[in-house]
C-alpha cells in the first residue's frame, strides 16, 4: 500500500461536484504536484485530505490509516498551509507559530525550540515579536507556512503557497519546499503555475473540473502529449488574421499567444518550420526569433483539455 492513497474520492457541494472520483497514490518522500486551473477542485481535494471536509464517497488512507476512522491520528502527521492566509492578526509571529504547534501536542522547551527553528527557517526570526499586520505580502506567506511546519510533520500540504507575491519571495518559498523535502517530509503542492510544479515536483496530477485527467512523472506526462516539441516564434507585432492562417497548416493542433510570442503545437515540428515561416511572411509579419522547445505541462494541459491552464 502506498504512503498516501485516495481511492475513488467524491466530494459534492450540494449538487455541484467538486471532486469527481479521484484516485491517486503518493509515495513517502515525494513532492507531489496537483496542477489545475481555478475552480478545478484542488483546494477541495486537499480539504478532504486534511479532514476539513468529509468526502461523500471513497476512502483515503495515510500510512495505512483510514482518515475517517482515526482522524486525529492522521491529522497529527500532517501540516496544512491553507490557500488563504490563516493566522491571528492580534498575536505576534512567534505566538502564532507556537500556538499552532502546541495544538499538535508539542510542549515546553521543545515547543520553544521548534518555534525558533520554524522562525529561522522562514527568515522571520528578526521579526518574531512583531504582529503580522505590518508584514509584507511575502512575509505573510512565509508565516502562513511557518505555522504549518513547526511541529515537523511527516506530510506537508501546501495549497497555492505562492499566490500573489513577488518573484524573490516566491523563489525563497520554492527553495524552502525543496529543503523541507530534503529533511524528509513528503510534500503535496497545489498550484496553477505550471512552471512551479514543473521545477519542483517529482510527480504531478493534473486536475480539471474535479477529475484527475493525468497523473505521473513529468516525463511520463510529456509522453502523453502527441508531440514532444513545439515551435516558439517571437515577432515584433502580431495580427489575428495570421493565427487563422497558421491553424490551417496540416498537423497544427494548438497555438498559444502570449504577448508577441506564439507557441505552436504541431506534429513533426521540424518539418513544419518552413511552412510556418512562409505563412508569416505571406502576412507581412517580421519574425525576430524562432526555436523548437520541449513541450511543457501547459502544452499537455492544452492538449488534454483544449483549454489553457491560465487565462
Amino acid at each position: 500500500m502506498s504512503y498516501i492513497e485516495l481511492a475513488s474520492v467524491i466530494k459534492r457541494y450540494g449538487h455541484a461536484i467538486a471532486v469527481d472520483n479521484i484516485s491517486l497514490t503518493i509515495e513517502k518522500g515525494e513532492i507531489f504536484g496537483l496542477l489545475g486551473p481555478n475552480g478545478a477542485g484542488k483546494s477541495t481535494t486537499i480539504k478532504v485530505l486534511v479532514g476539513l471536509l468529509k468526502q461523500n464517497s471513497g476512502d483515503i488512507f495515510i500510512d495505512g490509516v483510514d482518515i475517517k476512522s482515526a482522524p486525529l491520528e492522521t491529522k497529527k502527521k500532517m501540516g496544512f498551509v491553507p490557500q488563504d492566509l490563516a493566522f491571528y492578526d492580534g498575536l505576534s509571529a512567534l505566538e502564532n507559530i507556537s500556538y499552532f504547534a502546541s495544538l499538535y501536542g508539542v510542549k515546553g522547551s521543545r515547543l520553544k525550540e521548534l518555534t525558533d527553528e520554524a522562525l529561522a527557517f522562514t527568515g522571520l526570526y528578526e521579526k518574531r515579536r512583531e504582529k503580522p499586520k505590518k508584514f509584507s505580502g511575502g512575509m505573510k506567506r512565509r508565516l502562513n507556512i511557518a505555522c504549518a511546519i513547526a511541529h515537523q510533520p511527516e506530510i506537508i500540504i501546501m495549497d497555492e503557497p505562492t499566490v500573489g507575491i513577488d518573484p524573490q519571495s516566491r523563489n525563497h518559498i520554492l527553495n524552502s519546499v525543496k529543503e523541507l523535502n530534503h529533511r524528509g517530509s513528503t510534500i503535496i503542492y497545489t498550484s496553477h503555475y505550471m512552471e512551479e510544479v514543473e521545477s519542483l515536483c517529482h510527480r504531478v496530477g493534473i486536475i480539471d473540473y474535479g477529475k484527475l485527467i493525468a497523473c505521473g512523472k513529468k516525463e511520463e506526462l510529456k509522453r502523453l502529449a502527441r508531440t514532444e516539441e513545439k515551435i516558439v516564434i517571437e515577432m515584433n507585432e502580431i495580427n489575428y488574421g495570421v493565427l487563422e492562417a497558421l491553424k490551417e497548416i496540416d498537423g497544427v493542433s494548438n497555438i498559444i499567444v502570449e504577448d508577441n510570442v506564439l507557441d505552436i503545437m504541431t506534429l513533426n515540428p521540424q518539418t513544419k518550420i518552413q511552412e510556418v515561416l512562409e505563412t508569416l511572411s505571406g502576412k507581412g509579419i517580421a519574425v525576430r526569433n524562432i526555436s523548437l522547445k520541449e513541450t511543457d505541462l501547459e502544452g499537455i494541459f492544452l492538449e488534454l483539455t483544449g483549454r489553457r491552464l491560465r487565462d
Binding site: L52, K76, M78, F80, P82, L103, C147
Partner: peptide, 14 residues
C-alpha cells in the same frame, strides 16, 4: 474570517 478556525480544525484537536 481570518481562516484561523479552518487551520485549527486541520490540527488534531476536537
Amino acid at each position: 474570517e481570518q481562516k484561523t478556525m479552518m487551520r485549527v480544525f486541520s490540527t488534531p484537536i476536537k
